[in-house]
Amino acid sequence: MENTKTVRVPGKAGAYFKRNIGIIVGLIILVAIVAISEPKFLTPSNILNLLRSNAVNAIICCGMLLAILMGEIDISVGSTVGLSGVIGAFLIANMGAPVWVTVIACLAVGAAVGAVNGVAISYLKVPAFVATLATQCIGRGLTEIISGGVTIRIRNDAYTALGNTSFNGVSIIVVYAALVLIFTWVLLNKTRFGYYIYALGGNKTAAEYSGVNVKKYNMLPYVLIGIFCGLGGLIWSARLGSAAATLGEGFEMDAIAAVVIGGTSMSGGVGTVGGTFIGILIIGVITNGLNLMGINSFWQNVFKGIIILVAVIIDVLRKGRSKQ
């Protein structure tokens, strides 16, 4: 009877803290350590900087969360960011396309990659890891072909403004990330689509037998992931005013790390946007904090690895305890 643990309850701040207490405490400890060793950490401008640096990761994490909630994974996200970023840069810089065409093209490229993933995984039953490994390869290859291995420079102020505008010091890309997070939260908590994602991640057969169109709802999230990646590529190319063939390399790892730290179960069906948000912050604070302290970036990987391991171990222990 003591097993009243809730996995997902919409709303309610109290429940949110209770559910994510482990990682929230972890985040607070981390912030405290960094703030004490580097006073500049807690300055408003650094906090804005931290949010800005992690905005694209947050957008991609929203996509990764959908994949992992379904008990699957999408490792093509980084290459999709690269592909749409480079195609965007190519269109605007080399073809002289209008900004709105370029924006739509970036998102469409993402959606197309996502659709390939989704069809392969959902309808053709290719395991998600394999399908997205293939599209990762294809995407990266196309990125290199289109860019010709050259960094494409963008000299279009209207386009670069899409990544470089700020409102009272808050960068526009933080706004994008916030919108995507809110969108994903609403999707998962307030729509049937979201409930079906949880259902088919928790038990695909039960969902199918309950009349859920599992093929469709297994496929559509990948399209959404692709669109998020397309947005990521758009933002990066606009922000840097350039796009290189290496854009997005390794993005999938940071995204998986944040989602897993955020308490999402790799076997699917369990996870929240709120938890993921904290996961993103944890990853962000580690990177930003260590950069501020001037600690070699190679150590950042070591710390990230340790924190992922600790987060997962805590999750496993907690599950073990609630099982008795």
Binding site: K40, N46, N49, L240, L247, T287, N291
Partner: peptide, 23 residues
Amino acid sequence: VQVVEGGGDTNVTFNVVSDALQA
């Protein structure tokens, strides 16, 4: 003042330099 690891890459350097400018 500081040595940051930019990996010879645009977006990595962008992030680490942003952080260093804060520090």
